[in-house]
Each structure stands twice: as structure tokens, then as C-alpha cells.
Nucleic acid binder design. Structure first.
Length: 139
DNA sequence: GCCAACGTTGGC
DNA sequence: GCCAACGTTGGC
């Protein structure tokens, strides 16, 4: 099965990459947006997930992997919501900033840029390779 | 089922 | 801190 690529957004003030690394794995809970939820549900074990710090940093800082496919979000008191379990894999050697991504023709089509409010989104393999290159990082 | 009002997110 | 963009809600 081919690996899929994703990008999730998080405000570093709420749960930073550093927190994630310390925890090693985390349940990606709290998604309350239908489109993002549907994306979460399509994540497969072993898929690669880029980790984007929004608001105060606006850059991709690390790479994670899906370790558990979607299950009901335990933090949701009502409604039909899902989460996945992610494992921190490695930080990018060089963070890739929003500014860089906007300026890069290979990345300007990413949902991150066109749909700024979406908190979990699919990436193409081409996007992923480009991001790794810009981040000077190999998986 | 449409659309206006409102709330939230995120870039600047 | 402000404001634009977007998703969601609720009245009709």
C-alpha cells in the first residue's frame, strides 16, 4: 500500500512539537471540523504527517507517523468525531515557513495555503518530497 | 433549502 | 490586537 502524506496544524501554545516529542505519541484529538475529520479518517497506519505550527510561528517543524488509525475522539462529549494516534518521527533540520511555501510554485497549490482554516489535510507525494527537501531532511 | 448572522481561526 | 475568510447555525 502506498504511503499517503498529510499535514496537521497546531498552535504551538496549545500543543507544540516539543511537547509532542516529549510525549513520543499522542492522540490527535479535538478536531471539530467535518472536512478535517474526514481527512483524519482516511489516514492509514504508517502514513506520514507533517506538523505545522500556526499563528505565532507559521512553519512546518517536524514529521510524524500514524500509529493508530481513527477511533472515536474521547474528548468529544457529543457528536461524531474521530482522532488518530501519531508518533513523532523527527524534526525538520530546517523548518519550512509559510512564506517559503507561498513563494514555491511546487507548493503554492497546497490546501494549507488555499484553505487556511483546515486543520488536517492531504498532501501529494510531490508536496511531501519538496517539503523534505526544503527542510533538508530525509525520512 | 436558502441566506443572513454569528463565532472561530489564523495571517498580518 | 485587528480584521478577513470561512464554517456553522438558525430563522424564514
Amino acid at each position: 500500500m502506498a504511503t499517503n502524506y498529510w499535514l496537521v496544524k497546531q498552535e504551538p501554545e496549545a500543543y507544540s512539537w516539543a511537547d509532542f516529542v516529549k510525549d513520543k505519541t499522542t492522540d490527535w484529538t479535538g478536531i471539530r471540523n467535518y472536512q478535517a475529520r474526514n481527512n483524519l479518517r482516511q489516514m492509514k497506519k504508517g502514513d506520514v504527517v507533517f506538523y505545522y505550527h500556526s499563528v505565532s510561528e507559521k512553519q512546518i517543524v517536524g514529521v510524524a507517523k500514524v500509529t493508530k488509525e481513527h477511533f472515536p475522539d474521547p474528548t468529544a462529549k457529543e457528536g461524531d468525531w474521530s482522532c488518530v494516534e501519531l508518533k513523532a518521527v523527527k524534526a525538520l533540520k530546517v523548518p519550512v515557513t509559510l512564506e517559503q511555501m507561498k513563494a514555491d510554485t511546487a507548493l503554492a497549490e497546497m490546501p494549507l495555503i488555499r484553505h487556511t482554516r483546515l486543520s488536517a489535510m492531504p498532501l501529494t507525494a510531490a508536496h511531501a518530497q519538496r517539503l523534505l527537501k526544503l527542510g533538508k531532511t530525509e525520512l
